[in-house]
Design a protein around this nucleic acid. Structure first.
Length: 898
RNA sequence: AGCCGGUUAACUCAGUCCGGUCAGAGUGCCUGUCUUACAAACAGGAAGUCGAAGGUUCGAAUCCUUCACCGGCUACCA
């Protein structure tokens, strides 16, 4: 069989995905077992405007590992892909293009035509991320791919809205909302970032008291808002201002009379203890204004310009120009007390970065506190969902649910789900599933639909149920809901995870997912968050190109929940691992004539050699450990186990121990059996690795002799042969063989000690040596005797002498082994006595140091009295072993010195 | 301000829940090898007072307290 010497990931990556997809292996329908348990995941829908980054690659890898693992376990498995319409980003992107290419604004086109353009854009450029998932090897069911603006999902959005409205949980009203002047839309609190402003200033402004010489000084970071002040507040406990409560101030510049009110919100310790109150432009002031029934004067408009109410001089000025002018006027009037440097945080639009303007406006809101009640109870009473890691996310999630406030739903955009509310000429509102329903309710056809659309997260909140068909009671919804796990990043726990839980419980009575797996964050090598603006992002596609998809996947999977600094060298080492797998398979396949995978090996354990029993035992342990790790989302442990099983146990020892038998040229039964055993272990290892490294494992598996549909899991019997539908190896505990493991361990120790001698004594790698082994224990001797040929091969020995005792020449290098055995390498003319002396003494030094530690512990009467007896006994045993080895070494050293 | 995470070999990270063969892995480094699966490899080796200080305990990387530095989240800062 012709197999290239080095693994080329591209070849494997190009070959298998399209066949998997075309054969329908990704769809749950491939599973023909009516009683199969169900496993389902919905993807966190990426934005249509986005491009693949490491965070996606990480999440996708985790989801694919889980999906492939459960599919191989025989679950009816669904991983549902899809995308999000990303209201603001998409609209901005299309507007930009329109302006650049045609010099048009969306208003030039009009709403309908503009939306046509957005759809065109979406069809053409959208879906970059989702398409790249094929490259990743993601086993998503493409036939169930969904988009938040699909008809079905749009219907779900309307249904959600109407039901909430009917319950009184959605309402329309005036409120102080976060407004992005650049995007010209309202935003929810979660779409606002708090950013530290280092070069901020705090302005101290004096407001004269009416009919008095007194002035009250207020401090503010936003002097321009004073144009909209309607009061000054002080603490009711503040002696300094007690006599002023109820007094009237003369607001400078605008010459408006405003009262001094007492409010507990004010902290007398901070600033001057007096606070200007601008109810129309500040959340705290808004609340205070309501408490004191203050007028709300809007001085800033939706484009962050000053309104007519700000006064003729200010009307039309930008907010920062207005600020300068206000400050100048105060200075002129001698009312600017001082300006000090002041660090504080300002709100910025998470999308475009513009400074948020709190504005008073009429919007649609959802009473999240009501909707969040059930999820909160679910967590408190049933501990659902389960977060991985539990700390700190369970607490973060719970705290969030405990402090819910109204969610601003409406967005002043065109791209998105139009709010299903219509107004008649009298301004009465009709919320309905369809316009026809609204007309019926209104009794007129003369209705106008609300121009606004809903927050994109409103549709995302429905994702687990809407993608499965809700509000219809579809078979998919019945089968796949609740979903098994949600895999996502920590920054959207509130924005998305909690809200999905809310809608899921509200509409189905059940949690949206059993588990929530929160991945770690991948930083650049300096520990900085990867971002477009810093352009320090690592492009997953470039990493794929450089090291292969499988290597990248296994590194990402091992990352799991841990924050990690990205480093190509890790991927490089797993690229090497892939190459190791390739070459191990290459060796097996080059020696596969007359061999086949499977039954022969399983059939008669009595015919197995020691190393066969050993590798089978190791395989069971690995299967057990990997399975357990995957069940507990410990991907790091799973990867470590696989890596060491494959490289250390299988490649370094098993293949080497089998080599003599396997490479025999005559087609003997023994040779073919040995070959079959090696191939069978390889096949099992490939299955274990498959969820992590789907391409190389499939590629190699397809080359194995004798594979076929009979290898598939019973649920997939009708499918064509593919490793992805075989069953995931389950540990057969009966094949764990402690004795074999101990025996092979003693062979490994022997080989290692002799290799060490060879290296320390500078014996040329090609130079054969003779070795003499003394093994007083009969069983140990038997192990060495039966393994003599293998030992000879592994240490390049021309001759091996094994006895109860040996009479080695003085000119020998020696090593003491476990269980009282000893090995000597006669080195007439080669040995450097001084060096050997030093080597042995070093060895003895190590043993003595260890023994001293144990002795000290055992000499401590407190320890002996208080520690568990078995622990004491264990230490005594260890000390005895050490003492014996030390004695033996001492004799060896003495013999050398004679 | 509150809550939380991190700090272990030169680098990237395990181990900490449940204290005692736990001081680990990979990379890098040093020394040899193109030994017919693999130089993307093989063989051998050096390397860490587990952030600091106290405490609990017979025994602490692991439990408790305080502190330092880095990072995150939430709230508020007029």
């Amino acid at each position: 069989m012709e197999i290239p010497k080095a693994y080329d990931p591209k070849l494997a990556e190009e070959q298998h995905y399209s066949r998997w997809e075309a054969s329908g292996y990704f769809a749950p329908e491939i599973n023909k077992d009516a009683d199969a348990p169900v496993y389902s995941i919905v993807i966190p829908p990426p934005n249509v405007t986005g491009s693949l980054h490491m965070g996606h690659a990480l999440q996708h890898t985790i989801m694919d590992v889980l999906t492939r693992y459960h599919r191989m376990r025989g679950y009816r498995t669904l991983w549902l892909p899809g995308e999000d319409h990303a209201g603001i980003s998409t609209q901005i992107q299309v507007e930009k293009k329109l302006r650049k290419e045609e010099g048009l604004t969306r208003h030039d086109l009009g709403r309908e035509k503009f939306l046509e353009r957005v759809w065109e854009w979406k069809e053409r450029y959208g879906g970059e991320i989702i398409n790249q998932m094929r490259r990743e090897g993601a086993s998503v069911d493409w036939s169930r791919k969904r988009f938040t603006m699909d008809e079905g999902l749009s219907r779900a959005v309307r249904e959600f809205f109407v039901r909430m409205y009917e319950k009184g949980w959605i309402y329309r009203g005036e409120g102080l909302i976060n407004w992005c002047p650049k995007d010209r839309t309202a935003l929810s609190d979660l779409e606002v970032d708090k950013v530290e402003k280092k070069d901020g200033k705090l302005y101290y402004l004096q407001y004269p008291v009416k009919d008095s010489d007194r002035r009250v000084t207020v401090a503010t970071t936003r002097p321009e808002t004073m144009l909209g002040d309607t009061a000054v507040a002080v603490s009711p406990k503040d002696e300094r201002y007690r006599d002023l409560v109820g007094a009237t101030l003369l607001l400078p510049v605008v010459n408006r009379e405003v009262p001094v009110v007492a409010d507990d919100f004010v902290d007398p310790e901070f600033g001057t203890g007096a606070v200007k109150v601008t109810p129309a432009h500040d959340p705290n002031d808004y609340a205070m204004g309501r408490r004191h029934d203050l007028p709300q004067i809007k001085v800033i408009d939706s484009q962050a310009r000053m309104t007519a109410e700000a006064g003729a001089e200010f009307e039309g000025l930008g907010r920062y120009e207005a600020r300068d002018l206000v400050v100048a006027k105060f200075e002129e009037a001698g009312l600017l007390e001082k300006v000090v440097d002041y660090e504080f945080s300002i709100s910025k639009c998470a999308r475009c970065g513009d400074v948020i303007e709190p504005l008073l406006s009429v919007q649609w809101f959802l009473k999240q506190a009501a909707l969040g009640q059930q999820p909160l109870e679910l967590m408190r009473e049933r501990h659902e969902p389960r977060f991985i890691p539990e700390n700190p996310y369970e607490k973060v999630y719970t705290n969030w649910l405990e402090g819910l406030y109204d969610w601003t739903l409406s967005r002043q955009l065109w791209w998105g789900h139009r709010i299903p509310a219509w107004y008649d000429e009298a301004g009465r509102v009709f919320v309905a599933r369809t316009e026809a329903d609204a007309r019926r309710a209104a009794g007129t056809d003369n209705l106008t639909q609300d121009p606004d659309v809903l927050d994109t997260w409103f549709s995302s909140a429905l994702w687990p149920i809407s993608t499965l068909g809700w509000p219809d009671e579809t078979p998919d919804l019945k089968t796949f809901y609740p979903t098994s796990v949600l895999v996502t990043a920590r920054d959207i726990i509130f924005l998305w995870v909690a809200r999905m839980m809310m809608t899921g419980v509200e509409f189905t009575g059940e949690r949206a997912f059993d588990d929530v797996f929160i991945t770690g964050t991948i930083f650049d090598k300096h520990g900085q968050r990867m971002s477009k603006s810093k352009s320090n992002g690592v492009d997953p596609l470039e990493v794929f190109d450089k090291y292969g998809v499988d290597a990248t996947r296994i590194v990402l999977a091992a990352t799991g929940t841990t924050d990690t600094r990205w480093n190509d060298t890790q991927v490089e080492s797993y690229r090497n691992f892939a190459n190791k797998i390739w070459n191990a398979a290459r060796f097996c396949l080059m020696n596969s004539e007359g061999a086949y995978v499977g039954e022969g090996f399983e059939g008669d354990p009595k015919s197995w050699a020691l190393h066969d029993r050993w590798i089978m035992s190791r395989l069971q342990r690995a299967s057990y450990d990997v399975g357990r790790a995957l069940e507990s989302y410990d991907f790091h442990a799973a990867v470590q186990t696989l890596y060491h099983f494959f490289w250390d146990d299988f490649c370094d020892w098993y293949i080497e121990l089998s080599k003599a038998d396997v490479t025999v040229t005559e087609a003997t039964l023994a040779r073919n059996d040995a070959r079959s055993r090696v191939l069978t272990i390889l096949e099992q290892a490939l299955r274990l690795l498959h969820p992590f490294m789907p391409f190389i494992t499939e590629d190699l598996w397809q080359r194995l002799p004798g594979i076929g549909s009979h290898f598939l899991h019973s649920a997939y019997k009708d499918a064509e042969p593919t490793i992805m539908l075989t069953s995931y190896p389950q540990a057969r505990m009966g094949l764990i063989d402690e004795r074999a493991e101990a025996d092979v361990q003693s062979l490994i120790e022997l080989v290692s000690r002799v290799r060490n001698i060879r290296s320390e004594m500078n014996i040329k790698p090609g130079e054969p040596v003779r070795i003499m082994i003394a093994a007083p224990d009969a069983d140990a001797r038997a192990v060495f005797e039966s393994g003599a040929q293998q030992i000879a091969r592994l240490v390049r020995a021309s001759d091996i002498l094994i006895g109860e005792t040996i009479n080695a020449p003085r000119a020998s290098a020696r090593a003491v082994l476990a269980g009282g055995a000893e090995v000597a390498v006669p080195l007439e003319g080669l040995i450097d006595f001084a060096k050997e002396h030093e080597r042995l003494n070093n060895e003895r030094g190590k043993l003595e140091k260890e023994a001293a530690k144990l002795e000290a512990q055992l000499a401590n009467s407190n320890f002996v009295e208080r520690a568990p007896a078995e622990k004491v006994e264990e230490l005594r045993q260890r000390l005895a072993d050490l003492a014996q080895r030390t004695r033996q070494l001492t004799q060896t050293v003495e013999a050398l010195s004679e």
